Simulated scan of single mutants.
Amino acid sequence: MMDMNVSFALSALVVVLAAFMTVTRANAVHALLYLVVLLLALAGIFFQLGAPFAAMLEVIIYAGAIMVLFVFVVMMLNLGATDQRRERAWIVPRVWIGPVLLAGVLLAALLRALAVTAPAGGGGPIGPAQVGLVLYGPYALTVELASFLLLAGLASAFRIGRHLQGGE
């Protein structure tokens, strides 16, 4: 039980640090890297609380699909920018130090959690049927509104990007 508490505390620490780094970065790509680490740490917390399906949804939907959308929007806003110095600055090793350190702490917490066989939460596993019933039952309107919000954000970013480049 003690190992699970340590893993949970490490994952929570990674979430807090990554969230702080996400909102304090001036460069959008750096903020997105920290946001991915944050979402993976949240998935680790879900897993440690006995909700492996919710953890996998966190990884697949948020850290996967939503982050691809965010990266696409960032790329679209920078479309046509030929600043090679800025692009080289994104791939220097010092930019990756923070996300790599936080991901390492998260990996250590995950390995500790996997080594312990007893689940931290008292409930049983959450299956796809239960998640589907909740998402598309009483919260169906909320899920659809969230998808419209993402679509509106993407359309707004496209419009702003075209305007900044002198398109319209």
Rank of each mutant, 00 (worst) to 15 (best):
F47M: 13
W96K: 07
V71L: 15
M4V: 03
M56E: 11
M76N: 05
L10C: 03
E58M: 07
S11N: 11
G153R: 03
R162P: 04
L33M: 14
G137S: 01
L17G: 00
H30N: 08
T24K: 13
T142A: 14
I66H: 08
A65L: 14
T117F: 10
L69F: 12
M2A: 13
L39C: 06
V68F: 15
G50F: 02
I60E: 15
V131N: 04
P128F: 05
E87K: 10
P93Q: 09
L57R: 10
V68A: 11
T24M: 10
D3V: 11
H163I: 15
L32M: 09
T22I: 01
G167L: 13
L35N: 09
E58K: 02
L57Y: 08
A118C: 06
L42T: 13
L10F: 07
T82Q: 05
V100N: 02
A31E: 03
R86Q: 07
E144V: 15
R86H: 07
A28D: 09
V23Y: 12
Y136V: 13
M2Y: 10
A81R: 06
V36R: 13
L101Q: 01
L32R: 11
P52A: 01
S11G: 03
G132K: 00
L10Q: 08
F70H: 06
A89H: 02
L154K: 00
V16G: 01
S11D: 09
Y136M: 09
L154N: 00
L107Q: 10
L164S: 06
M2D: 14
I160F: 09
M56N: 11
G80N: 08
F8L: 15
A41G: 06
L40Q: 12
A65T: 02
P99S: 07
I66L: 15
P125H: 06
E87F: 08
V131S: 03
V59T: 12
F148A: 13
V92H: 10
V92T: 13
A9Y: 05
F20S: 04
A113K: 06
Y139R: 07
E87C: 00
R162M: 14
V134I: 09
G98M: 10
P52D: 02
V105P: 00
A55F: 11
E87T: 05
H30T: 05
S7R: 05
A54V: 14
A155S: 08
A19C: 02
P119W: 03
I160S: 04
L111K: 07
V14G: 01
L102A: 00
V143E: 08
A157E: 01
L135Q: 08
G166V: 06
L150P: 04
I66E: 15
T117L: 10
V14Y: 00
V105R: 00
V92F: 05
N27G: 04
R159N: 04
L133C: 05
L145D: 03
F148G: 03
R85D: 11
Y62I: 00
M4A: 04
T22W: 01
V15E: 04
I126L: 12
V105S: 01
R85F: 03
I91G: 07
L69E: 08
L69H: 07
L151C: 04
A118F: 08
G124H: 06
L150H: 02
L79T: 15
V68W: 15
I45R: 06
F70V: 01
V95I: 13
F72V: 09
V68D: 10
Q165I: 12
G104S: 15
A55M: 07
R85E: 12
G127D: 15
G50V: 01
M2H: 13
L32Y: 09
L17W: 03
T24H: 12
R85S: 08
L39D: 09
L111N: 08
